[in-house]
Design a protein around this nucleic acid. Structure first.
Lengths: 224, 224
DNA sequence: CGTATTTTGTGATTTGTTTCACATCAAAAT
DNA sequence: ATTTTGATGTGAAACAAATCACAAAATACG
């Protein structure tokens, strides 16, 4: 039973990511504790919102002493299942795929691309730290590395087909760089990243801001 | 007066992008008109929502006859200022920057990267369709091509510095791939794209969905 | 030509999210 | 030991977004 089910990161979760990035930075600078006020200032979020978000994820602070950063970070790690490593497969070693396969920040966050796949046999001879396989080894790799999440970076035309195959072999979550809406069963999580849309939306905002001439005309965009 | 002002694409605008992508596909398949019901089905949005969104952007259809796709698309083009070309600069020719410089979908949508910049003189000798310059030619290029929007794909550490320089030379909108929150004046539009966060959120959802075991536990994510 | 049908367009209602306001607690000061 | 201070945590209020429901319009059909 295939259908379109797009999940969108909830704003509160997006902000938790934001807080974490900020906390990591503060911690490296030697800071040990933060107040909702500090963290809010640093992330462009109101202190109320910070506390509400923490409340949603049952994160507790000290009534006067604020939040201890180390504690906050380890709570967040467990929220995000960052304790363990996560094995990922990447399908499509074109321009974007190759770049993603080298993207070091995934590794920094314990997300390891264990293998990549491409139909082009030429790509398979490419020198690369991560092996490039044909699609027929997909099942083997997914099983061996207990892979649950895949990156789809194939051309638009083959995205659905690849997705179907991934799901058939046990993939539960997909981040999709192809500009198509994938049809998947409702229990499968899909996160679409469309770089053209992102860039185009900046252009759109710039034009409409310029028209409104400095005056903050918050009509078609909202503040996170 | 620098501050953190993150703009997030409003959901209705995101959906307009979605509709457009879908309409382009339908048009290529020879379809000439759609109903809110059809379009909604195709995009995973309720028909009501489709009509509400169109209403927000003052897009009109024909009572009973639905919407003519060509007309819809041309209305959207003018909403998105797609009539004219848009010149973009890209700063940072590392892994991600190189990939973005070759990203053909930007060109397909009239968004042209006219020049790229990198501090590394070695990168400047790289063979590439788009010229790679040193940062000191930034102003010249921005003025010559009337560039309003920039892509920031530099390492975290230099992102703020680069951003300041871009704004000083007249850039009004930035799409930022560095995982930092840029501090900018309120009239500047920043759109942050954080690929690690996007991937990590998929992992998060997958884990929490699996825990809920098939039952759609829509707690930390929402349907668009 | 008039009636039935289908689909839009939009107020009214519901649902969800953010901001406000203040009780509560912990630490510091007296 | 008591008061003051400064922060959290969370219901209540305000605001925003999505859904509902139905009037209005265009077409089809008898």
């Amino acid at each position: 039973m295939k259908q379109i089910t797009k999940y969108v990161i909830k704003n509160s979760l997006k902000r938790i990511f934001l807080y974490r990035a900020c906390l990591v930075r503060l911690r490296m600078m030697g800071v040990e504790r933060v107040f909702s006020y500090t963290l809010g200032n640093e992330t462009g979020v109101t202190p109320d919102q910070v506390r509400k978000d923490f409340s949603e994820f049952s994160i507790k602070g000290n009534k006067r002493g604020g939040y201890e950063i180390d504690e906050l970070l380890s709570t967040m790690e467990s929220i995000f299942h960052r304790n363990k490593d996560h094995n990922i497969v990447l399908v499509g070693m074109g321009n974007m795929g190759q770049s993603l396969s080298k993207y070091s920040r995934f590794v920094q966050r314990n997300m390891n691309i264990v293998a990549t796949f491409d139909i082009d046999p030429f790509k398979q001879k490419m020198r690369s730290d991560i092996p490039v396989y044909t699609m027929n080894r997909l099942k083997e790799i997914i099983d061996r590395f207990k892979v649950k999440v895949a990156i789809v970076a194939v051309p638009e035309i083959s995205a659905q087909e690849v997705t179907d195959e991934l799901i058939r072999h046990g993939i539960k979550g997909i981040i999709n760089f192809a500009p198509v809406l994938l049809k998947v069963p409702p229990e499968i999580v899909v996160n679409n990243v469309n770089l053209s849309d992102e860039l185009e939306s900046v252009i759109y905002y710039v034009h409409n801001l310029l028209k409104a001439d400095g005056q903050k005309n918050i009509e078609y965009y909202t503040r996170l």
